[in-house]
């Protein structure tokens, strides 16, 4: 930790000699007296007077110091965390505003499910955001980044360990409704690129939260594969399976036509670890998030940029306290010889 101090406005320090004034000034507020020599010496009075003068000097010094705005300069600190660098890549498309199956869907009759889902089930994006928020809160050692994507990708929060920023980023995803397009390919390419030029300090994860797939063309597939290989990023796909949406594990050549299945199959060919979680209800989603949490737990070294910290507020408070003390002491000062 660097403990040096810098000043935003060092020119104000030129006023510092003013602080000597209270120690010098002899006649301020003193009552004239013909001959102090014949009065008794009073050590207590001298001490109190000296203390008051030192306090006034300190108060002036504090004000001058506060005007010069001291602070700890911007610095880099090496931190060690346990856990991974997790990029939350969250689908922001309109389909995410649909509802999931309600928790008790297994007891419902097949005829009711559709209506029940449309009326009772939790909204996908809300449930996902809530769970991801809890996930982030449970893992203080991980570093998170947050991106949303629909037609293009919005990088909301860069990699950081500051939970509140991440939480705010996740909450921001709930503003207004989603767009209609979903371009998973572009989102993945730009998300992988965010790992570029960063020291490899621990396992890297892209946590893709989405409810739909896409067929990717060959160029996109190549770019994604190359990116994942170069950056050594693991991919976790939490597939929010809506009612009546295809199952990822459908077998058969024909199911290649379904975008979700095609995407799943492409992901399986990636050189880096890949896992898919199908979540139909909030419970499934919670289990999936839990599982990701268990997967990644390695120590992680990283450098953090600590912004400049301004001390002037503390110093102003000190100065105020000193001045208040002096004012209070002024109450005890006799103003005349009567």
């Amino acid at each position: 930790m660097i403990t040096e101090v810098d000043f935003l406005r060092p020119a104000w320090l030129a006023l510092m000699p003013l602080a000597i004034l209270p120690l010098w000034a002899r006649s301020t507020e003193a009552i004239a007296y013909p001959d102090v020599g014949w009065l008794p010496e009073d050590r207590l009075g001298r001490l109190i007077g000296l203390a008051l003068r030192v306090l006034s000097a300190l108060a002036i010094a504090a004000v001058v110091l506060a005007l010069a705005a001291p602070g700890r300069p911007q610095s880099m600190a090496l931190r060690t965390g346990r856990g991974a660098e997790v990029l939350l890549l969250i689908d922001r498309s309109r389909s995410m505003d649909e509802r999931m199956l309600p928790s008790d869907w297994r007891e419902l009759s097949p005829y009711d499910i559709r209506h029940q889902t449309e009326s009772r089930g939790p909204v996908k994006s809300q449930a996902a955001r809530k769970l991801l928020g809890e996930f982030v809160a449970r893992r203080p050692d991980d570093r998170f980044a947050v991106s949303f994507f629909s037609a293009s990708t919005l990088h909301v929060v860069p990699f950081t360990q500051h939970d509140e920023v991440v939480q705010a980023g996740i909450t921001a995803g709930g503003v207004h409704r989603g767009l209609s397009e979903t371009d998973v390919g572009r989102a993945l390419i730009s998300s992988v690129a965010r790992f570029e030029n960063r020291a490899y300090t621990g396992s890297r994860i892209i946590l893709l939260v989405s409810d739909g797939g896409a067929r990717l063309d060959e160029d996109t597939r190549l770019a994604i594969r190359a990116g994942f290989e170069r950056q050594r990023v693991a991919l976790y796909w939490i597939y929010l399976k809506g009612f009546g949406r295809p199952d990822l594990e459908q077998a058969g050549e024909a199911s290649e036509a379904i975008p979700e299945v095609a995407l799943h199959r492409f992901f399986e060919t990636l050189p880096t670890p890949y896992r898919a979680y199908q979540a139909e209800s909030p419970e499934d989603l919670a289990a999936a998030v839990e599982d990701v949490g268990r997967q990644q737990n390695h120590p992680l070294d990283f450098e953090e940029l600590i912004p400049r910290q301004d001390y002037s507020r503390h110093i102003i408070v000190t100065a105020l306290l000193l001045v208040a003390t002096l004012l209070a002491a002024g109450r005890w000062q006799l103003r005349s010889l009567r």
């Binding site: 003193a30 001959d35 102090v36 009073d42 009075g45």
Partner: peptide, 28 residues
């Protein structure tokens, strides 16, 4: 009388000598 008789109130009394400017502080 105000030089021979101390002020009635208690507190800090700062006196400045009229002739040599010296300061005397008394806690009355």
């Amino acid at each position: 009388p105000s030089e021979t008789e101390p002020p009635a109130g208690d507190g800090l009394l700062r006196l400045r000598d009229l002739e040599n400017g010296r300061l005397r502080e008394l806690w009355l």
